[in-house]
Write a protein that binds this DNA or RNA. Structure first.
Lengths: 347, 347
DNA sequence: CGCTTGAATGTAAAGCTTTACACAAGCATG
DNA sequence: CATGCTTGTGTAAAGCTTTACATTCAAGCG
């Protein structure tokens, strides 16, 4: 055990595969094989190598391996905004699967800026990343166009998707989830139901809006449709909430929000205007973030299987990279979680 | 412009520094210098190299560079829990500085598990990371012992610290911040002030508790001290809130919480018990997370300059790595943000 | 026994960049 | 003019691993 670790410019003192080979009395090739393809090495040699590795305290030099293998064992996950707690559980799911397969996850926070996303895409051709997991659609289209999930450009979308490009995707059925929420509100007796959408250009929001419309139509309520646009954040929820609930206008009795943060902003607006929730206003959120159980009143919301989305997306990506046959489009199920922010409208 | 990008096993077709050299009519050494030390190359050559690079579409192979330079241009940031939104702004700050210096930030979510932290520490001796930014103290002590911030083991702590090891640190003055909060509560007329601490073993919590005690003592209120322990999360705040406010016992009139999430949990407990906030109970949080403006009532809390903490910590780390003289211990100032969850206690 | 086959291992090149060292030319200095 | 310095560039090694190919040896088979 001669763990080398002396202060100095660099630890050039780290033992290399040569040292192992010397101690084990074999060639470096054999050591390499003992590590990468144990079955190609005799039992006795494998043992000697293992012993030698322990003795010199060897750990492979990853840069050299990456250089030789032309890979990086790194997956980059592109997020629109790391401060949104919605993503943390997805990341956990991704990492669980990635680590098991020997991959690292590099989290790329794009801060809603396509230019940042572009910078991360550059990691792929330079072998600094082996694949991309895209959790945002705010990306220059031209970058994505080349990728159809070929192993030459391994890319998987999670949660989000593009309307006109058919990429491998793991997501929920946003249309259905919206239908579910609106159906539920109608069943409670609501007729004037508004939607507080995320960015209108966002495909998942379009899907949700479509579900909203379809369900209203099915109940002959299209005339009551009202849609305003937010950005998924607290503040926009609050501001658009104030706008929707403006006194002196006929108010909606329920608002379907495309994120929990916006729903919570709406709750604040309602409080400020003195509206009772759920008596005078019902609110439904989306995502079931941790906070939704602790706001006042507790939020009715749509829960996505976040950990599973992360896991499946990573599995899909790794499968794609290995050239395995894969299900290119996976739809996971959502759940409407009824809490205290929804109820029958007061008469 | 012959951007090579054909499907195939790997893009071995990526142009290398040799291609550039051939086109520019010089040696690879000169190309390398033109990129890394432009001043060592004549103006005309530099231009020819630049042109050649553009023509062949060259991008350096990072793995090869890392191998040769024995570095990775990667900093790993170890978090206790990525789902805590408190960290996101710190990460932003770190990334801003890191990217400017050509470094990547690898976020390591330890999920409160020292074993996970250990795995990330392994990246250092194997040249997969050049330095560590530690945002958690839940780390095997033995790992940290070796590091005193020498450039051989570049490590900087942010927010947290160890009681008995003097590492380079960027943090706030937790004692002072607590004093500030308690002083404020006392000035409102509170006498029975409880503390809902984070994990008792955590040095920053100890500091805050010390500030709490000192301030009570300064006002002859030590007899009223009452401390319970949580884990910074919503749920523990709620549960310990219920315990603290248990009917039939003399209740505290104010609770100082070591995180906003716990404070919000306490608010829920108070609501459930029918206690008016701030009339019957005042609550102070810690961290000023985005949510604290949107809960009911809006939370009085202590704000940390999160972005700046991230920036300074990264600057300190990079300075350390370059062997520059640095201020090893930086204390940033906090701010008490008074909102609606605190007030004079009802008579 | 001679031949084939397979398993186990070694040799050496390749992967791409950086950099120590050598070299050449130009210029100034004594 | 000899000397020495500076500036710019090239040569080649080094950084560490993986892997195609070569080699050896033993076993199996006719």
């Amino acid at each position: 055990m001669l763990r080398a670790k002396v202060s100095g410019k660099r630890n050039h003192l780290m033992p290399t595969i040569k040292d192992v080979a010397r101690v084990a009395g074999c060639s470096t090739a054999t050591v390499s094989r003992a590590l990468a393809n144990p079955e190609k090495v005799s039992d006795t040699t494998r043992e000697r190598v293992a012993l030698a590795i322990a003795e010199v305290g060897y750990a492979p030099n990853v840069a050299a391996r990456n250089l030789r293998r032309a890979e990086s064992k790194t997956i980059v996950a592109l997020l629109p905004d790391i401060s949104n707690p919605f993503f943390s559980e997805i990341i956990n799911g991704m990492e669980e699967v990635a680590h098991l397969a020997g991959y690292q996850v590099l989290i790329g926070d794009c801060e809603h800026d396509p230019a940042r996303a572009e910078a991360y895409f550059e990691l792929l051709p330079t072998n600094q990343a082996d694949g991309i997991l895209l959790l945002t659609a705010e990306v220059p289209m031209v970058l994505v166009r080349q990728a159809d999930g070929q192993s030459s450009f391994p890319l998987v979308m999670a949660c989000e998707f593009f309307a006109d490009i058919d990429l491998p995707t793991v997501a929920i059925d946003n249309h259905q989830a919206a239908c579910h929420a609106i159906d539920y509100l109608i069943s409670l007796g609501h007729r004037r139901i508004a939607t507080l959408s995320g960015p209108a250009a966002n495909p998942i929001c379009k899907e949700r809006v479509r579900g909203y419309h379809d369900t209203l139509a099915a109940h002959g309520l299209v005339a009551e449709a009202r849609i305003v646009e937010g950005d998924f954040g607290f503040r926009s929820g609050y501001q658009q909430g104030l706008a929707l609930l403006e006194p002196g206008r006929t108010r909606p009795t329920a608002i379907f929000c495309h994120s929990d943060e916006m729903a919570i902003g709406v709750l604040k607006a309602a409080r400020q205007l003195g509206l009772a929730v759920p008596g005078q206003l019902s609110v439904v959120g989306f995502d079931n973030i941790g906070f939704s159980e602790y706001c006042e009143p507790e939020l009715t919301t749509i829960s996505q299987p976040r950990n599973e989305i992360g896991q499946q997306a990573m599995r899909l990506l790794l499968g794609l990279m290995r050239g395995e046959p894969v299900v290119r489009r996976q739809t996971l199920s959502t759940q409407l979680i009824v809490r205290k922010s929804t109820g029958r409208p007061d008469a």
